[in-house]
Each structure stands twice: as structure tokens, then as C-alpha cells.
Simulated assay, not measured.
Amino acid sequence: MEVKMKISRILVPTDFSENSEVALKTAANFVDTFGSTVDLIHVVPVMRYFHESMEALGAPFSIENKLYPHTLEVAHAKMEALATKYIPKEHRGRLLTVIDRKPSEAIARQTEEDDYDLVIIAGRGEHSSPHILGGTTEKVIRFSKVPVFRVNDSFDFTGTSNIVVPLDFSETSYSSIIPAFEVARVLKADLSIVHVIELYASDSYMIPYVPAGVDNQPVYESLIQNLDQYLKDHNRLLSIKRTGTVFKDALILNEGANQTLISMETTILKGITVYQEIVDHMNEHGDLLVMSTHGRTGAARFLLGSTAERLSKSIEKPVWFTKK
């Protein structure tokens, strides 16, 4: 797995709402840093029931021959205006208009077919509700094969100093550490590793599943040892440097004579739900969350897809969803 981040091609979905424009503003910052090419996509929903009803009534109106072509033409003009407003001419890519019954799946399918490096998508849509564009956003996060960067406000590269990375002992969660390191290197930020111990099982009638007094240090040591082994197995250029201070380490990248060091602090939290602990920690300490969308299940469950989707709706700060 490479450490150097490559973001040559970006896909930005839009529903033409003011809220969705924050994704384009963010994409413009990526253009400045990575020289990326930005494509826009708008999905026109299929109006199957309306189409069939009009046909049954014998109405002299064709959705396929009149409504869809007009809608696609208007959508293309709006995307052209947005691209002109936010993206420098030499970095503007294609303007894609698609008719599909499921917008989220159409967007995810486009990312895979055209080999994009990143999807930048707004967390809210036309009505400032996480349930409008938000519902599509959650599904894009779930279905996309490439990383998804969810933003609610325009992301400023200069205002990020602490990147939070949740880990749960699963290999899938550890896979987020390499892209998190590269994001931290680009943003000149530190990493904050978070592990949550759930104190109660869902079917235990509030009987402690893990003793509240469990010592955090052995959990931390085990977490770091497992992370170190993961890096040895997947990327020998990146390794952990122990500082001798508990909970404080560093990630170091060796590239010949060059070395890059990113500070890394680990926090062990205890709570009833992983979800709420991450939300509270991010609200208080984090500027950006980088996480995998899937992890373990069962007693040690942590980064389940449903947790990732809930976090996407509940955390106002930007979230970078990695893909293993």
C-alpha cells in the first residue's frame, strides 16, 4: 500500500443547492494543493410512476422525449456555471448528467467506472437537512469503492491541526492509518488515535460488559503493537516510533535519506456506545475524522457501516472515509 497520496481525479456530486456548493469550494482547495481535475455529476431521478400514468391516460406528453432532454440540458448548464465559478479552467473535467432510479448507486458506479481518487460530497442538500442530500451521502459512503470526503462547510487546509483516527483492533480499521498519515502530512497536522471500550452489552440489561475500572495502559500497548505489526505487513516505509511516554508516540516515514515524522497520541475512552464517544471526542478535540467504514462485529464492535453513516450525519466537522 502506497503512502504518498495521489488525488488526480475528483468527483463532486451536486443537487444545485447552496449547501452542496461547499463540496465544490472544498474541491477548489484540493486543486490548489494537488493539481487535481474535478468532474461534476448530477443525477436526475427516474419518474417511472409518473411516466406510466401519463401513458395510461393517453396524454400527449413524453417524459423520455421532452422532459428528460430538457432537464438534462438545464442541469448541464447549471453545472457549467458552477464549474466556472469554483474551478480554474485548466482543472475542470467532465460535467456528467445521469438518469437513474438510485442516485447514490449511480454516483458510486461512476467512481468505479472512471477510476476516481476521491469523492467530495456535501453532508446536506437542498433543505439543510441530513435526510435530503444526507440520505444520498450516507449511501455513497456505503457503496463507493474510493475514499469519500464528507463536508458540511468549506474545508480550509490551513485550519486543521488534529486528525482523529478511530481504531478497534480490526485490520480494516488499521487500514485507515496510512491515508490518515498522508492527510496529516499534507495538512501539517497531528494524529489522535481513539479506541472506545463499550461498558455495556446491548442485551445485558445494563450489566457492565467490561469493568469500568479496567486499566487503559494494557489496552493502549496492545493497540499500538497490533498497529505496528499491521504496518510491517502492509507498508515497510511507515513505522511507529515509541517516545517512552505512555499514550504518546509518532509515525515516521522513511524515504531514503528523507524522514517525515507525525506526532500521534492515543486516547482510550469508555462509554455506553462507540458512536456517542466518537461524536463527543470530535466535538471537543478534533478538526477532521479519518475512518474506515467497516470493522469488527460482536462484543468488540466498533466501525460498523451503520456507525460510520450515523457519524456522517452527527458530526459537523469533515469526515474522510477510507476504503480498504
Rank of each mutant, 00 (worst) to 15 (best):
E2N: 13
V3C: 13
K6R: 11
K6Y: 14
I10E: 06
I10P: 03
E21D: 06
A27G: 02
A28S: 03
V31R: 02
D32C: 13
T33L: 11
S36L: 04
V38R: 11
H42K: 04
V44G: 10
V44E: 05
P45D: 13
P45W: 12
P45E: 12
Y49T: 15
E55D: 11
G58N: 01
A59N: 00
N65V: 04
A77W: 07
A77S: 01
E80A: 02
E80N: 10
A83E: 02
A83Y: 01
K89P: 14
H91D: 01
D100A: 01
R101Q: 15
R101D: 14
K102E: 01
K102L: 06
E105K: 07
A108H: 04
A108T: 08
R109L: 02
R109P: 13
T111V: 15
D114C: 09
D115T: 09
Y116W: 15
I120D: 00
I121E: 00
A122C: 05
S129C: 10
H131K: 02
L133H: 00
L133P: 00
T137Q: 00
K139W: 00
S144Y: 06
V146R: 11
P147F: 06
V148W: 00
R150N: 11
R150L: 08
R150Q: 06
N152S: 10
D153L: 08
S154I: 12
T160D: 09
V164C: 04
P166M: 12
S170F: 12
I177G: 06
E182T: 01
V183N: 10
A184S: 10
V186E: 03
K188D: 11
K188V: 07
K188Y: 08
D190P: 03
I193D: 10
H195C: 13
V196A: 09
V196G: 01
L199H: 15
L199C: 04
S202W: 09
Y205I: 11
Y205G: 15
Y205C: 12
M206Q: 03
M206L: 14
I207Q: 12
I207W: 14
Y209M: 02
Y209E: 01
P211D: 14
A212V: 02
V214F: 10
N216Y: 01
P218W: 07
V219T: 12
Y220E: 15
Y220R: 09
S222E: 05
L223T: 09
L237R: 09
L237K: 13
R242P: 08
T243K: 12
T245N: 14
V246P: 14
F247L: 04
K248W: 15
L251E: 15
L251Q: 06
I252C: 13
N254A: 05
A257P: 14
N258T: 07
Q259L: 14
T260W: 13
I262E: 15
L269N: 02
G271N: 15
T273E: 13
V274T: 06
Q276S: 01
E277C: 11
E277M: 00
I278N: 13
V279H: 03
M282P: 12
G286C: 05
G286Q: 09
S292C: 04
T293G: 07
H294S: 08
G295P: 04
F302K: 07
R310P: 06
S314C: 09
E316T: 03
K317D: 02
K317C: 08
P318M: 09
F321Q: 00
F321G: 00
K324V: 12
